Computed example of a mutant assay.
Amino acid sequence: MKLRGVRRSRNIEDRRRSGGGGLKISGLGLLAVLAISYFTGVDVTALLDGGGTTYEGELTPAEEKSADFSAAVLGTTETVWTGIFRDQLGEAYVPPKLVLFSGATASPCGGASGATGPFYCPADEKAYLDTAFFATLQQQLGAKGDFAAAYVIAHEVAHHVQNEIGILPQVNRLRQSASQVESNALTVRLELQADCLSGVYARNVEGLLEPGDIDEALNAARRIGDDYLQSRAGRVPQPHTFTHGTSEQRSRWFARGFETGDVNDCDTFGAERL
C-alpha cells in the first residue's frame, strides 16, 4: 500500500506509554460491545504466545512505525468514507477515534487486551487496537503484508460505519432478546457486512493499492475465519458458535464489496446465502 505522503489522521489516541489502565466491564458494554475479537471461542494463549507487552517511556522505532502506519491508514478511511457518505448515502461522515494500546486498557464496552484482538466500542465510538496484533497477524496467523494490517483497521472502521448508519444499534437491540445461537447468527451477518464494507473501502482507495494488496486482504480474511481459528486451536469447528463467519464467507464478502464499491451491495441481512 502506497502511504508515503498520505495525510495522517489526528483521530489517534495513543495509550501505549501509559501502561494497562484497569479492566472494567460495564453493563452497557456487555450489551453493546460488538466483541470484535478475532479469537472468540478459541484458546488465545495457543495463538498469542503470552500476549502483548506494556510499554513504559519512549517507544521504539518499530512501535513508532506501527503508530504512523495506523494513522496513515485511518486517514485513508476518513477520506474514502467521507466521499462514500456524500455520494452514496447523502450524509456527512463523522470518523471514529483509534485507540492504540499495549497489553491491556479500559473501554466503556469492557476491558481491551491483546487476547481479545481489535474491536470497536459503540459506546464511545472508538476502535481499539493493540499494535502487537500486527505481528500476531503475520507471524502466528500467516496473514502477511501491509494491506493485511490495513484490512484490520478498515474492518473496525466499517463497524463504525454500521454504527453511523444505524445498523449496529438495531442489531444490538435484537441480540439482547435473542438466544445465544440466534445472537451468534446476527453477529455473523454483522461481521460479514463489515468485511464487505472493508472491500468497498479498498475499491475506493484511489491510487494507493499495489499489486498483491487485495490478495493480502483476502488471505487475512481467510485466516481469521471462525472455522480456521477453531481448527488451528485444535477444535472441531462448531458452526453454532461462530460469531464472524467462515474463511470462505469472510473472503467472499470482502471480494464482493471490492468488486462493486457500492454500500448497497453489502446487505448481508437480506441475503439468503451468507
Rank of each mutant, 00 (worst) to 15 (best):
Val181Gly: 01
Asp227Glu: 09
Glu64Gln: 15
Trp253Gln: 10
Lys144Leu: 09
Tyr38Gly: 09
Glu58Trp: 04
Gln170Ser: 10
Glu13Ile: 15
Asp226Tyr: 05
Ala271Asp: 06
Thr243Gly: 08
Phe101Ile: 02
Gly52Val: 08
Val94Asp: 14
Glu63Tyr: 01
Leu137His: 03
Gly261Ala: 13
Val33Met: 05
Val33Leu: 10
Ser198Lys: 03
Val6Asn: 06
Ala150Tyr: 01
Arg273Asn: 14
Ala217Tyr: 01
Gln162Val: 12
Leu31Trp: 13
Arg86Trp: 05
Gly90Cys: 11
Gly27Leu: 15
Asp14Ser: 10
Ser107Lys: 03
Val263Arg: 00
Glu58Tyr: 04
Thr187Ser: 13
Lys2Phe: 02
Leu229Asp: 01
Gln140Trp: 02
Ala233Gly: 15
Phe101Asn: 01
Ala67Met: 12
Gln176Met: 14
Glu216Asn: 08
Leu31Asn: 11
Gly75Ala: 10
Leu28Asn: 12
Gln162Phe: 01
Arg10Ser: 13
Ala92Asn: 11
Val80Thr: 11
Pro169His: 07
Ser113Ile: 04
Asp43Val: 04
Asp130Phe: 00
Ala217Met: 15
Cys196Met: 06
Met1Lys: 02
Arg203Asn: 14
Gly234Lys: 05
Val205Glu: 03
Asp262Ile: 03
Ala112Asp: 03
Ala150Asn: 00
Ala194Tyr: 03
Gly111Lys: 05
Ala255Glu: 14
Glu156Asp: 10
Gly199Asn: 02
Cys266Gly: 06
Arg10Gly: 14
Asn204Met: 11
Leu209Gln: 05
Pro237Cys: 11
Gly29Met: 12
Phe119Met: 12
Thr116His: 08
Thr40Asn: 15
Thr131Glu: 03
Glu64Val: 12
Phe134Met: 02
Leu47Gln: 03
Asn204Ala: 09
Ala143Leu: 03
Leu23Asn: 08
Asp49Thr: 04
Gln230Ser: 05
Asn219Asp: 10
Thr116Leu: 15
Gln140Ser: 15
Glu210Tyr: 00
Leu229Phe: 04
Arg15Glu: 15
Leu74Asn: 01
Arg250Tyr: 10
Asp226Glu: 07
Gly270Ala: 14
Tyr55His: 12
Ala149Met: 12
Ala62Trp: 09
Gln249Ala: 13
Thr131Pro: 00
Gly199Pro: 02
Gly19Thr: 11
Gly83His: 05
Thr77Lys: 00
Pro95Asp: 06
Thr53Phe: 13
Ser247Asp: 15
Ser247His: 05
Ala220Cys: 07
Ile167Phe: 01
Gly52Phe: 04
Thr136Ser: 10
Arg173Thr: 13
Thr116Arg: 09
Leu174Met: 15
Thr131Tyr: 01
Asp265Cys: 10
Ala104Met: 13
Met1Thr: 10
Gln249Tyr: 05
Lys144His: 06
Ala115Asp: 12
Lys144Val: 07
Pro169Met: 10
Gly75Ser: 09
Leu59Cys: 10
Glu248Pro: 01
Ile36Leu: 11
Ala35Asn: 15
Tyr228Gln: 07
Pro122Thr: 08
Tyr93Thr: 09
Ser179Gly: 15
Val157Ala: 08
Gly212Arg: 07
Thr243His: 12
Leu129Arg: 03
Ala115Leu: 11
Gln88Gly: 04
Cys121Ala: 06
Arg203Tyr: 14
Gly111Asp: 04
Gly245Ala: 14
Asn163Thr: 02
Thr45Val: 07
Pro239Ser: 10
Gly57Ile: 11
Phe133Thr: 10
Gly22Met: 07
Gln138Met: 04
Leu47Arg: 04
Ile12Thr: 11
Val80Glu: 02
Cys121Trp: 00
